[in-house]
Every structure is written in structure tokens, then in C-alpha cells.
Design a protein around this nucleic acid. Structure first.
Length: 745
DNA sequence: GACCTGCTGCGGCCTG
């Protein structure tokens, strides 16, 4: 037995020795020569089922086994009553993967493994209903459905529950699904009447204390943190820069036919040709930031294969493609017999095992450093291989009317800043502190379904006091219940019991109820009765504010949130920036690093010739325009206000300016304010700097499109504004910025 | 011009 895991070291033999004999045997049979670091550390922490644990380790470092070896050992010790464990995953595909892995192990232990999600046949789910033991792999939505549909059966179904495991923990933190998950975990413990050990697994956790607080909100300090050693991987980066010709924007016909903008530009072809040249013959992932670009590039690459008479190696993968198309691409990547590259959106960023990938290509700036990091985690997973990142930035040709963001080459500078931050080990922390009133509404309706009615006091005790929604006070809660009554979501019987109202009944009984997040909705853009197209709106809008669409500027006349229509009129003024950040919210630290990149004189080592030339052009502009000291200047009939801040601060300041009568537009590193003098703007900034209270209810009084989350429509108006501000605006920093800007000039 | 995730019960039909 010299090659057994037990012999690798003393500490190892101790952890290995704690496992059930049958699991030890299985490990030998698999031919494993040693336990991985994460497994060594997790076994002693989990085997007694007496605490919460987070296991942070790189992708493919054996996190699943790290959790399940000791958990299954614990269960086997209590034979014949082995009990059950709940494994919660954000993705169905991940559940299917894990089902395969765990079934191999559990078959030999005689422990059932049941996958439970929307694609699983009811007959297989019935196995767990009949005999609720073993491993149940489930999504938060399916767990929600169990509470709603089988509320009275839940205490029985969960009575033997010993652990709850949450996979890809980082994917939940700060999001609607995360708040829902916290609420479900709390309700589970109330259902079984005891504290259940919670286990979180993740590869991308920055702030471990934050993750612990998420996993056990009332007692984050007690969560045991296991951070596995990571064999410091080498990273190779190259960013290539290209200059694009300006898009057409002169003739009237563009308005009638916005598709004119979609013609493939020369530099797009250049990028596609370079991708073809360097990617052929290996497995890679290409991320071009939008579904449309995915289609564009995968088509160009595929046609390149045809033209050269070679088998196709390029596959498209995104959320609007059917399951069949997506599985074709996944199969091609996993297969291994022939090289395959997927051109994809975030669908291939997380979770499912697609095998080893040689390089990651990022076309345009990444949406965030966290996302870039997650994407890169997919590359160079074989021992000794470097992770390879190829960036492609296309910048517009400059003219006398070019916008500030084009002059500073915002796309390229953002890419450089994000790579520098990645190398330094920084990435965006999840945004916690959102009120999540929308998800509270869902949970109120769910608890009523679970119990066939509930009093206000019971709801308060289950969801708010000591529950997942502690951010709400009693007055808020009472107001919310009353408002839900007005919307016919709730009704009250003579004994005071709250039941579903007419509308609530209908919504809870439809399967769409189980997900806490809303599906995409777009606003239709209308000009003089003519539809220009539709777009998702991520920034708050106030009338007379400007937006950019189809390469033109428009002024907002009216927003109809019910009909989802924005009425606009053409706006005169400078050319709109061709770079629009891709729509993702950019963090403060990224914008500050962008400024450092421009200020810096040292060459950036990971740029090609084209990108180097663009960078020095941008640095020249920064120096000549004196942007190190100038924060505000007149340009045509508008004032440009350089903030160098993240979008939460920028949007906050835009809303504060709206409150004092100025319609500002967030354009990334700067706000622009049309039809105003610098003097008038200074007065406005001074007024903002002196505001003693920053009440979101007042600040957002005129903001129109602030319905973001699924149940926002059912929230009392004031709560909605508070909820929106808690997630999307940083008003305090925005006021501080107004103060700084005023003093600096 | 960002992206992604998830979903029950039942009626009706077919087959053995």
C-alpha cells in the first residue's frame, strides 16, 4: 500500500483515516495517490456535522469530494438511519454533472442520489418523496416549489436532513437568488426545528468574511474558513489594438433603417482573421460581450473554415440558443478528438466541466474584473501550462467632433486597467446591502402557500425578525402588507389570517412564481409615433435626459413604465461616444485605475504595436487637455464633468443634479450636462454639496424607469425608491464628489 | 445598444 493516500504524509493519514472504510476503499479503487489540499482540510471540519464551513479552492481542485467524503462518512456512521443531505446549485447543468460524479461513489455505499430540477421527470422525484434519504441535488427554484406545493409535507421530507451544501456560493451573493436562498435556508431550519450545518463551496471568493456572513447571517464569525493552496499559475496576456472607421451617421435613411449600422467593419474582419489564425488546432473560448457579436464572430470564423476547405472548429454558445445547439458546442469542447473553440457569452463562464482550454479571448473590454477572472479560470488547467489571455480592442477613428470617451480610448484603457487589477489580485466585491423588497414580497406569498395562510406576526417572525430580511422595520413591513392588499396579492379573513388575494392566487399558482429574478424586458423607443427599436435600460431616466441609440443622441420626452415605451426626440449636440462600456456597471476602483493608466508614463508590457500607439495617443490627449487638474469644461453647448468614478456614484450624481433641475447623462468617466453654463453647474454642485439629508424618496421623485426586480411593481412607492437606491446609487459618495468638484474649481 | 440563471400540475393522447 505504499501508494495509498494514507502514506503521503502524517496529516494526510489523519484525515484519510477519519473517513468511512468503504469510502477509503473507493478512493483506492479510483487509483488516487493523495488527497487534495482542500479535501485534507475539509474532512476534519465536516465529519462531525457540528459547524458551518466554507471551502474555497480553484476550479477542478476536488471541492465536491472535499465536502462529500466527510458528509457521507458522517451519514454512514448513523446507519441504518443514514439521513439526507441537500446540495443546492445555481445551474441545472451543474446538477447533472454532479449527479454523475456522486452516483459513482454513492452506488458502492448504497446511498441514493436524486437530481431534482425542472428537467427531471416527476417519477424520479417521487423516489425521494417516498423514501427521503440520501443526497438530493436541487436548485433554489425547485426548493421554493417544494415549499409552495408540498408545504405540509416538508417537515416529514426534511426531518432526516443533516447538511445543506451550497455550490458556487459566489454566484448567489448580492443577487436576488442569493436573498431567496438565505430565506429558504432560514425557513428550512424553522421547518426541522434545529440548526443545520451549512457548507459553501466556491472558487471566486474575495472577501471571506463577507461570504461567511452571507452563509450564516446571524453568526458569520463562527463559520470555519478553508482556503486551499493554489499552485500559483503563470499568466500570459496580449492585448491587440485596432482603429475602426467611423460609422455612417449623415444621411436621413439611417433613421428609417438602423440596421445600416450593423455592416461588418474592416477591423472586425481583421480580428476574426487573427482569431482564426491563432485558435485553429486547439480548444479555446472567445468572449465578445453580446449575443449579437457572438453570432457575428462565430459566423465569420465558420466561413473562414469553409473558405479554406477545413472542418469547422468554431461553435456559438449563448442563452438564446436552443438546448440542442448549446449541447452540440459543449460536446465538441469535451470530446477531445478534434479541436473546438466556442464563441460565447457568460453561459460558459461558470460551472459546467468543458475540459481543458488553451486560451481565453476577450473581444472588447470585459464587463468586470471578477468576470474576467472567472473566464480565465477556464484556461491552462493542465499542470505546468500557463493561462493565456488574448484581448482585442477596436477604437474609432478620431475627428474634430469626437467625444471625450473616444479621445481617451476608453475601451482600451478599461481593458488595460482591468488586466492590471487582475494581476494585482483585486476584483469587485459582491454588492451586499440591497433591501430586496421584491424578494420579500415573493417570500411572503410563498410562506402563505406553504402554511395555507399566515398571520402578520408569523410572517414577521419567519422572514424579517432574525430572518433574511432584517433590513426592514416594523412600519415598512406593515405598509408593505397593506399595499399588497391593495394590489390584491393578499386578503385577510375574519380571524386576521392573511391569504392570497385574487391576483396573488393566480401568480403563486403559475410556475413562473418560483424564480426570484425577472426575465429580460426591454423598452420600446418611439419617436413621433415611429418605433426606432428596443433596448434594455440600465440607468435611471428622467424626462429631458439624453440617451444614445443607433449611434445617435436622443432626448427623452416621456417614459411609460406600464407600456414599456420611451418617447424621444432627436437631440442636437456633439457626436455620441462610440464606446458605451457594454452596459455593465463599472466599479470605482476600475475607473480610478483607468486614470492611473492615462497618467502613467511607463510602457504597458502586454500590448501589441497597435494598442501601444492607441495608448500613447490617449496619454497625449490626457496631458494636452490637462485632465490631471481640469475636472470640468465647456464643449459645444454642453458641459463635461469628469468624475473618474464608478457608475453607482455617477448615476447618484446624475440623479442629484436632476433634483436641482439639470439633466445630466452618465457617459462613463464623465457626466455631460447639455444647455448649461459652467457657472450654473457650479451653483448646482454647491447646492448638492450642502444637502443635509439625501433621501432617495426625494432624489428619485422624477425618476421613471426604476422597476428592476420582479415584484417591484407591487411595492409601496417610497419603499421602491429606497430599494432602487440601495442597489443602484451611491448618494453619499455622489454628494462628496459634488463637494470635491466645487472646491477644485 | 451587456450577460446569465430557473419553473408545477394536469389533461390529453398513445401504446401495450
Amino acid at each position: 500500500m505504499t501508494n495509498s493516500p494514507a502514506s503521503s504524509s502524517d496529516a494526510a493519514s489523519h484525515s484519510f483515516g477519519q473517513l468511512d472504510e468503504r469510502i477509503q476503499r473507493w478512493i483506492w479503487q479510483e487509483g488516487w495517490t493523495a488527497l487534495r489540499d482542500a479535501q485534507e482540510k475539509a474532512i476534519p471540519a465536516l465529519v462531525e456535522a457540528d459547524r458551518d464551513v466554507i471551502v474555497a479552492a480553484a476550479t477542478a481542485a476536488g471541492k465536491t469530494e472535499a465536502a462529500f467524503f466527510p458528509i457521507l462518512t458522517h451519514m454512514l456512521r448513523h446507519e441504518p438511519e443514514i439521513g439526507s443531505v441537500l446540495y443546492i446549485s445555481p445551474l441545472k447543468a451543474l446538477i447533472n454533472d454532479q449527479w454523475g460524479r456522486l452516483t459513482g461513489l454513492c452506488e458502492s455505499l448504497d446511498i441514493p442520489v436524486v437530481a431534482w430540477h425542472g428537467d427531471v421527470a416527476a417519477s424520479r422525484k417521487h423516489k425521494f418523496i417516498k423514501d427521503s434519504k440520501g443526497v438530493l441535488l436541487i436548485t433554489p427554484e425547485s426548493l421554493e416549489a417544494l415549499f409552495v406545493r408540498r408545504g405540509t409535507a416538508m417537515p416529514g421530507l426534511m426531518s432526516k436532513l443533516r447538511y445543506v451544501v451550497v455550490d458556487e456560493l459566489h454566484a448567489f451573493i448580492g443577487a436576488e437568488r442569493g436573498k431567496q436562498l438565505q430565506s429558504l435556508l432560514h425557513r428550512l431550519e424553522r421547518t426541522v426545528g434545529r440548526r443545520l450545518p451549512r457548507v459553501g463551496l466556491s472558487a471566486t471568493l474575495g472577501d471571506m468574511a463577507l461570504a461567511a456572513k452571507f452563509l450564516r447571517p446571524e453568526d458569520g464569525g463562527s463559520v470555519e474558513l478553508i482556503v486551499a493552496k493554489n499552485g500559483g499559475q503563470e499568466l500570459k496576456v496580449l492585448i491587440k489594438g485596432y482603429v475602426e472607421k467611423p460609422p455612417r451617421s449623415d444621411s436621413e435613411s439611417d433613421l428609417e433603417n438602423p440596421q445600416m449600422e450593423d455592416l461588418v467593419h474592416g477591423s472586425t474582419l481583421e480580428v476574426a482573421e487573427h482569431l482564426y489564425k491563432v485558435l485553429r488546432g486547439s480548444n479555446n473560448l472567445v468572449f465578445p460581450n453580446s449575443r449579437r457579436q457572438v453570432e457575428l464572430y462565430s459566423d465569420l470564423l465558420r466561413r473562414n473554415c469553409e473558405r479554406n476547405d477545413v472542418p469547422n472548429e468554431f461553435w456559438a454558445h449563448h442563452g438564446s440558443l436552443s438546448k440542442e445547439f448549446r449541447e452540440d458546442a459543449e460536446r465538441a469542447l469535451k470530446d477531445g478528438s478534434r479541436p473546438a473553440t466556442a464563441v460565447c457569452t457568460t453561459t460558459l463562464e461558470l460551472g459546467i466541466d468543458i475540459g481543458a482550454v488553451k486560451s481565453i479571448c476577450q473581444v472588447g473590454p470585459p464587463p468586470s474584473v471578477a468576470s474576467l477572472r472567472q473566464r480565465l479560470g477556464r484556461s491552462g488547467r493542465r499542470k505546468g501550462e500557463a493561462a493565456i489571455l488574448r484581448g482585442y480592442c477596436i477604437e474609432p477613428e478620431l475627428g474634430p467632433k469626437s467625444s471625450l470617451s473616444d479621445c481617451i480610448r476608453e475601451g482600451l484603457i478599461q481593458s488595460i486597467a482591468m488586466v492590471r487589477l487582475l494581476i494585482r489580485g483585486w476584483f469587485e466585491p459582491p454588492l451586499v446591502g440591497g433591501l430586496h423588497g421584491s424578494t420579500l414580497i415573493q417570500q411572503i406569498l410563498s410562506v402563505i402557500a406553504e402554511r395555507g395562510g399566515a398571520t402578520a406576526g408569523e410572517l414577521w417572525a419567519t422572514l424579517v425578525k432574525g430572518g433574511a430580511f432584517e433590513g426592514f422595520d416594523r412600519d415598512d413591513f406593515v405598509l408593505l402588507l397593506r399595499h399588497m392588499g391593495e394590489k390584491q396579492l393578499l386578503t385577510q379573513d375574519s380571524s386576521g389570517l392573511l391569504l392570497h388575494g385574487e391576483v396573488g392566487e393566480k401568480l403563486v399558482n403559475h410556475y413562473e412564481f418560483y424564480a426570484a429574478f425577472a426575465s429580460d424586458e426591454e423598452f420600446r423607443l418611439q419617436c413621433e409615433g415611429r418605433t426606432l427599436g428596443s433596448l434594455p435600460v440600465s440607468h435611471p431616466l428622467v424626462p429631458s435626459q439624453r440617451i444614445i441609440f443607433a449611434g445617435r443622441r436622443w432626448r427623452v420626452l416621456d417614459v411609460d413604465t406600464e407600456k414599456k415605451v420611451i418617447v424621444v426626440t432627436p437631440d442636437k449636440g456633439g457626436a455620441p461616444p462610440s464606446f458605451d462600456g457594454g452596459g455593465a456597471m463599472v466599479h470605482d476602483v476600475v475607473r480610478q485605475e483607468m486614470r492611473e493608466v492615462l497618467r502613467d508614463k511607463a510602457p504597458v508590457p502586454f500590448l501589441d504595436q497597435g494598442a501601444t500607439a492607441l495608448l500613447s495617443e490617449a496619454r497625449d490627449f490626457y496631458r494636452r487637455a490637462n485632465l490631471d487638474t481640469v475636472q470640468l469644461f465647456q464643449r459645444g453647448n454642453e458641459v463635461v464633468l469628469l468624475t473618474w468614478r464608478g457608475d453607482w456614484v455617477n448615476d447618484g450624481l446624475a440623479m442629484l443634479l436632476a433634483g436641482v433641475g439639470l439633466a445630466a447623462t452618465n457617459e462613463g468617466v464623465a457626466l455631460t450636462v447639455p444647455r448649461v453654463s459652467t457657472d450654473r453647474l457650479f451653483d448646482a454642485l454647491a447646492e448638492i454639496a450642502e444637502m443635509s439629508v439625501l433621501d432617495p424618496v426625494v432624489v428619485l421623485a422624477d425618476a421613471k424607469n426604476i422597476l428592476r426586480e420582479k415584484w417591484d411593481w407591487a411595492m409601496p412607492d417610497e419603499m421602491l425608491r429606497k430599494s432602487y437606491a440601495s442597489l443602484n446609487l451611491d448618494l453619499i459618495e455622489a454628494r462628496g464628489l459634488a463637494e470635491t468638484l466645487r472646491l477644485a474649481n
